[in-house]
Design a protein around this nucleic acid. Sequence first.
DNA 1: GGACCTATTTATAATTG
DNA 2: TCAATTATAAATAGGTC
Lengths: 153, 153
Amino acid sequence: MSTRLIKGSKSVRLAKIENQNNRQVTFSKRRNGVFKKANELAAMIGAEICIIVFPPGSKPYSFGHPNVNETIDKYVGEETPPSPSSPGIDGNKLKNTNKNLERQQEWFRGPIDKMNYTEASMLKEGLEYLLLKVKNYGTERGYGYENGKWKAE
Amino acid sequence: MSTRLIKGSKSVRLAKIENQNNRQVTFSKRRNGVFKKANELAAMIGAEICIIVFPPGSKPYSFGHPNVNETIDKYVGEETPPSPSSPGIDGNKLKNTNKNLERQQEWFRGPIDKMNYTEASMLKEGLEYLLLKVKNYGTERGYGYENGKWKAE
DNA sequence: GGACCTATTTATAATTG
DNA sequence: TCAATTATAAATAGGTC
């Protein structure tokens, strides 16, 4: 009880914290805060949710209810990315994806490290389609993720 | 100013809300709350973050700073899932993934809809490795995601 | 780094219009 | 449905140990 300044104040919540120590402390506190809110949301609604956070230059922290990977797979499967060139009619999206897939099959034989952006982009479309197909095959893949619990820091 | 009961009360934050209307209202409010907190966290720390929520039987809601897909790809790329059977030495993980990849190449020719779980699981490992490779090829894939803004409801 | 403290700011449940 | 209100509960910045 001596020097006491502001405490729960400050309305500057959208500026990067410059002091590295304060930033680390705030990250730890607020990360837990966001994860806790997400956990409450999942429980109250009965929803699936996952959060992934990458602090600059660090490993990711993640939260998932009931599971991070499940939710990611489900999300990627839901997506139907439009072709960059064509507007893309809904009914033809799957067909187009399959056509891309045929073309891409050959690339699996070559060194994928040498793809350019266009090739990689097309490949990614195919991969996402494949992931959609794969995602339905059970859940025991889980490589040790959260289940309503916090991840060890 | 007549009947006034509790308002901001209730400590039961981990039970599913039974009343459908209340549940919908709470979902909308708290989803915005979580996304707002995540946005603040990203700004204050300078971190990447993404959130995906699936309400039961509905389309997903997502938040990403700066982008949902970027963060997912980065996360999937970071993962090095251990083989279910073998303990897996760190140095051999990539090599094993590549071996699986070779075997899986043949499957791309067959109907992927008929894979069993084991096949799909192996395929998924290969896909995740490929996605890691693909994720470096630019960012203009973005199929219209968030960038610090809220998604239309 | 973590666990606790506390003034202050936020989030939000129930309600009203 | 949907914005605004408001009493109350939570989150949290800065501090101490």
